[in-house]
Design a binder for these strands. Sequence first.
DNA 1: TTTTGTGAACCTATTCACAGCG
DNA 2: CGCTGTGAATAGGTTCACAAAA
Lengths: 208, 208
Amino acid sequence: MPYSKIPNATIKRLSLYRKQLRRLISEDREVVQSQELADSLGLTSTQIRKDLSYFGKFGCRKKGYDVNLLLANLRKIMGVATDNKLCLFGCGNLGNALLGYKGFEQRGFSIEAIFDTDLNKIGKFFHGKRCYSVNQAKEVIKRKNIKIAIIAVPDETVDEILEIIILSGIKSILNFTQRHLQLPGGIMARSVDFTDKLELLSYFSHTK
Amino acid sequence: MPYSKIPNATIKRLSLYRKQLRRLISEDREVVQSQELADSLGLTSTQIRKDLSYFGKFGCRKKGYDVNLLLANLRKIMGVATDNKLCLFGCGNLGNALLGYKGFEQRGFSIEAIFDTDLNKIGKFFHGKRCYSVNQAKEVIKRKNIKIAIIAVPDETVDEILEIIILSGIKSILNFTQRHLQLPGGIMARSVDFTDKLELLSYFSHTK
DNA sequence: TTTTGTGAACCTATTCACAGCG
DNA sequence: CGCTGTGAATAGGTTCACAAAA
């Protein structure tokens, strides 16, 4: 039943469930069991049922879960608005890969502003979006009421960019640099670092 | 002392430590305490000491850790060879961002072969590297003795690519698609998925 | 002193075992 | 039955509190 204090690990898995449910819907599936969901995600059925149980009862005994209904519930639980606006700092290779990434829109996120320090890029268009100077970031972010920033700049310039981001009233940061961000309270950051994962893979492939 | 069975979470942090140590070395630092290391990574000093204690004693009481020595030890522990060869499947936006990413070389990884299915790309050069047809992948991978593959293809083509990868004798996979990979035993995969993190950020920024 | 190294205590998360209900 | 939902048991990780050593 709702309320016991929900494990952090559970929260992290919710978006996995949503992802898989979307896939099932695209295949016109109407019902799914915890077992099948578990198999396709590399988890256990108990874990999925336990996770869901923190928020309520969504299944139908003997049948399983109504795919559409469960997805709708998860969306409500996670409170992901359908118009989550992002801004992107850094228009290099990575920045452009992100601009071309179709997954954002599919999930209700959209990059509403892009910033760079490079004078050759400012004013130009990337994937149909005008690149602004980072000096304009604070004004643009406040005007467009953006709450989430993506950092895809070179490691060396993080501090400078971070200062601007903090002043802009951003509440969440997705960090693609290798640096650990020192942040004031009230701002949350998540880092994407695949080099760590490579080293881990290397470690396992050599010990097992 | 060595041997109790090392927590998975510890292994995952080792590459964080290496990353920070490399940064300290680049600043000509010779010694560091667990406290400072912890602060810069957003961890606790106890945790770092505990993690290290699973592998042995590397510090000097009262002084701290010799930065170079500790890094050398971690390298040995993780067994990251200095010539870890990678191959890349998918030469789109993301693939090119990865090709341009300098972090690989810095950490002893190098992309030794790139593959695509697009006839317009095969035979062309990307970041100085020739793009091969995926049909040649098995042969090229075996010839160059590559053990780690990066998947940066569209989600829809994963199954096809995965089949090729498995036949090629690849042991580790870094997966950039949104799909969970079903793999035979003996192959390990890690996925990089930032959309999940975005949803998590959205969840927190809206509940707190 | 000061900082590392570590058993023990605590907290968090997963799995078990089975009750509940169509 | 068959599958969900869940308290209880277990496993996994972190933090505490302090001994050891320079």
